[in-house]
Amino acid sequence: MEKTLVEIAAGIVKSQAMVNPMSTEEVVDSLGKVFNTLKSLRDAEVSVDEPKEDKPVMDPKKSIKRNVIVCLECGQEFKMISPKHLESHGLTAKEYRKKYGFSARQPLCAKSLSERRSKSGKERGLPENLRKAIEARKQKGAKGSGTASGKG
């Protein structure tokens, strides 16, 4: 039968007390310190031995709901998963999307927030302005590529 951490700590402190005389307070203090040290060592050993499962807290397809999005790393609910929150898990938005199989264009926010943003953008004429900007960029690129490849 294995010894408990308390028994191991008591044995260590007992050995210390036999070599160096200790007051009752010193014994109690030493026992607490040794126990906490042994406990932290055991916890560190267990976490190294057991491979961390990268299993999401829920099905990624079900994590984006009408009014909330659930972080698949920790299970917290948000209106939008911020880059700062993802950073706390050591991820970027791009890495998070890739890890859980979301498309690169998938907004990391609740459906209602995404719809509200889309509607607001359309009301401001954003899609039309975007089309114009893309077209202008294409025309600018076509003009630049013809002159850049010509030799003297």
Rank of each mutant, 00 (worst) to 15 (best):
L113D: 06
A104G: 01
K33C: 04
K143F: 01
K52L: 08
L86T: 10
V28P: 08
E50D: 08
L5V: 00
K62Y: 03
K3P: 04
V46A: 15
E77V: 01
K140M: 03
K79F: 06
V19K: 14
E45R: 10
A142N: 13
V68Y: 06
S114P: 02
Y100Q: 03
S118A: 04
E2F: 00
V48Q: 15
K84A: 05
N67Q: 07
L108E: 00
G75A: 11
P127I: 01
N67S: 08
K52N: 14
F35P: 06
K140D: 05
A17I: 02
K140H: 11
C71D: 13
S30N: 10
S47W: 04
S88F: 11
K122Q: 15
Q76D: 15
E26Y: 07
K111F: 05
K99F: 12
V13G: 09
N36Q: 12
M1H: 03
E95Y: 05
S15H: 05
T92A: 11
K143H: 09
T24W: 07
R105W: 05
K3V: 00
L108N: 07
E77W: 12
A110W: 01
K151M: 08
K143V: 10
A104M: 04
K143D: 06
K99L: 07
V6D: 13
A142R: 07
E135A: 08
G11P: 03
S30F: 03
A17H: 12
V13R: 02
C71Q: 08
K84C: 09
S114A: 09
V34I: 13
A142C: 06
L5G: 00
E73R: 04
D49E: 11
I8K: 07
A142M: 02
G32F: 01
K99Q: 11
K98E: 03
V13F: 00
E25V: 14
K94C: 01
K99N: 09
P21M: 02
E95K: 02
P83W: 01
Q76K: 13
S145A: 14
D49F: 05
T24D: 15
A104N: 06
A148V: 14
V28Y: 04
S149H: 10
H89D: 12
K99M: 09
L130G: 03
P60R: 10
R42H: 12
A110V: 00
M58R: 15
P107M: 07
E73V: 12
R131D: 04
N129C: 07
M80C: 08
G125F: 01
